[in-house]
Design a protein around this nucleic acid. Sequence first.
DNA 1: GTCATCATTTTGTATGACAGCAGTCAAGAT
DNA 2: ATCTTGACTGCTGTCATACAAAATGATGAC
Lengths: 251, 251
Amino acid sequence: MTGDILRLTELPPLRRDQVLERLRNAIIAGHFKPGDRLIERELCERMGVSRTSIREALRHLEAEHLIQVEPRRGPVVARITRKQIVEIYEVRALLEAALVRRFAERASDEQIAALRGIYEDLRITRTTGEVPRIVALTKRYIEHMMDAVDHELIGDMLRKLTARINVVRVLAISVPGRLEESGHELAIVMDAIERRDGELAARSLTTYVQNAAAASLKRFDEVERERDSVSKRGSRTTRAAPARSSGAGRK
Amino acid sequence: MTGDILRLTELPPLRRDQVLERLRNAIIAGHFKPGDRLIERELCERMGVSRTSIREALRHLEAEHLIQVEPRRGPVVARITRKQIVEIYEVRALLEAALVRRFAERASDEQIAALRGIYEDLRITRTTGEVPRIVALTKRYIEHMMDAVDHELIGDMLRKLTARINVVRVLAISVPGRLEESGHELAIVMDAIERRDGELAARSLTTYVQNAAAASLKRFDEVERERDSVSKRGSRTTRAAPARSSGAGRK
DNA sequence: GTCATCATTTTGTATGACAGCAGTCAAGAT
DNA sequence: ATCTTGACTGCTGTCATACAAAATGATGAC
């Protein structure tokens, strides 16, 4: 019998999984910055585990694209390119649109009411400008839909994608005018859901995400430009990758 | 200077990456069957590397959902559930529709002509019923679009998704009537692309994928039913990885 | 056939070792 | 002062070994 559902003795969580989660959180939270090297021995000491566990967790993060590993140079917190941001938002738009469509069409009235509750919190908080709380509520909002829709794969993919652009995404919130604009879009989405109009909800959410993408890209470009001008006069930055600012197009 | 264009000593590919690729291929090709246990020591011996490299590759495969790891029981080739098949096809439909839309709208005339070439090969081969060749050409077809569209993320995701359902997918080809039906759908897609009608191409491809999903699910259910009735009278539990007589026999 | 008991595998983790690439820094050359 | 060179150091990639705890398999009792 393999399905040990009724197990009494909780077996201890695997060290490598604990390491994985803590590293992942640290990266997403921005505690490690893009480009930072993750040195194994350091991580060992700080987390009190052996290299074995650290390295296995790193392989997992590598597969999630949260770190990049150049052979014999070791892992680095993933830098994100402009093209990647564009692509991630594009796919996010597709997936979230599908998600909200299903939610509008299939969620129970209670689930929709609960979403309305989260939405109202969010709407109010948006007027106060408490960015961390806005981020948290936005997350709650989408997570609520994921739970209700019960689409493991879309949920999984969205979580991984948002992890990759979390830093950029948070920046985008503080783009002037963004909050008002997006508030309007979200209102339409919420109304459409309540009218069970999946199509409209999906279309509106797509617009919302596209605008969010535009805001993120704007901030990204600003940061890039600033970083460039600094590195031009300032000290020599140890940059591993060429990281051309514009026109990264290869032929 | 790190622009290693003129490197003489081609640095050896990392062992863990070689292991990763070989294991991944073995799983996708069905050389290991779903539910088979992957025992570290065995893999070490058969591949001539240490547990370190094997285990790191396994963590990567775990992140790709090609293996499942229950704590302290070790890795097992991922079994796929009916729900997962449904979900994967749903997302595949979304992503491939987006892909073909972009291709229809942006590809060069030459790229479209090349696609037509692959398509014609495929169309002819379909009449002959050579399943392996059909599979190969279908893969070429989609890969050609990925290359042309140059959307790293969608390409990446599609590759990972198809890896997970490869076995089921191949089975579906031999569903009676499927080939004729899908031939028709593909023809519409191809025509729409040539007329630069991204919308129609996307819609048709969605239908195509949905039908493919239906065929796969049908075969999946058949196999399931058969397996159930066998296990009811025959040997008891669903054995994980008995040393199959065919192939490498150990013990 | 079911169940308890013991032997054997296998995983999870730690430790130590070492070759070899990568980045650094100081000494010498121009 | 700047550039070049070469030694130095830091890390990664990989292996071998070890061992506790859990899982699996075998054995025998009821």
